[in-house]
Design a protein around this nucleic acid. Sequence first.
DNA 1: CGGACGTTTGATCCAGCTCAAACCCTGTGG
DNA 2: CCACAGGGTTTGAGCTGGATCAAACGTCCG
Lengths: 218, 218
Amino acid sequence: MLAHISVSAKESLLHFRCPPGKPEANDARMGRARSFGRNAEIYGEGESSGNVYKVLSGMVRVYKLLQDGHRQISDFHMAGDMFGFELDQERHFSAEAVVPTKLLCIKWDGAGEIRSGAYLRQLLELVKELRQSQERLLLLGRKNALERLVYFLLEMAQRSGNSRTIELAMPRHDIADYLGVTLETVSRSFAELKALGVIKLDGARRVLFDRNELAEIQ
Amino acid sequence: MLAHISVSAKESLLHFRCPPGKPEANDARMGRARSFGRNAEIYGEGESSGNVYKVLSGMVRVYKLLQDGHRQISDFHMAGDMFGFELDQERHFSAEAVVPTKLLCIKWDGAGEIRSGAYLRQLLELVKELRQSQERLLLLGRKNALERLVYFLLEMAQRSGNSRTIELAMPRHDIADYLGVTLETVSRSFAELKALGVIKLDGARRVLFDRNELAEIQ
DNA sequence: CGGACGTTTGATCCAGCTCAAACCCTGTGG
DNA sequence: CCACAGGGTTTGAGCTGGATCAAACGTCCG
């Protein structure tokens, strides 16, 4: 396998993950907006692809159902993210709205457009994202439950741009299926972080913390 | 993250993983051959990149050292495989020869050459390989030790093209660091498969088996 | 023959899974 | 305004797969 390749930050010529906020002026020209209710399916594994999505608001989970019935969440996407790229005609993951979500649907014929060369930049960006995913999976493999949760919180904090508080849109079950542990273990790990004094919980979904203290547990 | 993308088999326009055997006629024109002894370093994480490699004979392990000291092997490469592609100037993994190995070293300036468009096909191939790696890590995450070993054996069998016997070039320790378990657990899993009657061992490195029986354990 | 690896096997321990129950929050309807 | 239903979350008790530590066993080679 050749599964180790990397792209430096400066290679990211297109901004797949734009800062959240007002939609860009040309969004309307790119595709049409659609709304999805909580837990609504956006697409399912095995369906035919044909477009990509940009998150305008809300949150999306992308996942795969394993043979043993486990659901492995591969990614969460938040406002500004694009997702749903496939280089062939088939969906290899499923996607659902975590909360009520607005998406911009953009027509995109993977292989064809890429081969034309016009989408070289996106392709490079995709490689970068894949590498990040690979890195994450490689790292998590040997981490214990507490470290996994810390990793998750730091990732969410970084992506939401806030280093003191995060609003978790997803339930414990989703966090569990993202980190590869059970929801009980996630809950216990939250409790342990609270007991250690490195986070505070305001309800189950709002987390207050100090980035550096968290990072120490790594 | 956008880390879910796929390339169908028919997209593989270039054969990165050629059938082993006599070197191709134009190999000599592509680069120069080099030999590496057992466990010799080919490159190290953090070094600057500048070429890619094609395995002429032997076997290569590509890995990363995690902060906690664990070594996570990302890939094994065998005759015909190419590896060492980076899109920036830095090695993000380390590579070593598992056994005495001959490599063809090919000059390759990642970003530059790719941006020219000439390497679009390789790029697509890389995305495919990355997706495979992602899929593997996603799958292994929830498997137990026995299932992981079966996965490994089936993968090796498929890649070596032989469905009745495989010659494992790597020690138990390498298999362990590839599957994310300890070498003792790998050894015990081999013993269990033998007890189940789905494999036979001739020494530690030669495995006799029936593909279908193995696949049943999945 | 002896030393160095690599592999197997044994004994013990514990993190995380499983099953189960209690708890909490929010919306709904009497 | 309260009751209550249903989903999400927390907490508890017990079990177990794999890690860890340790020792014996093979095998190759100088």
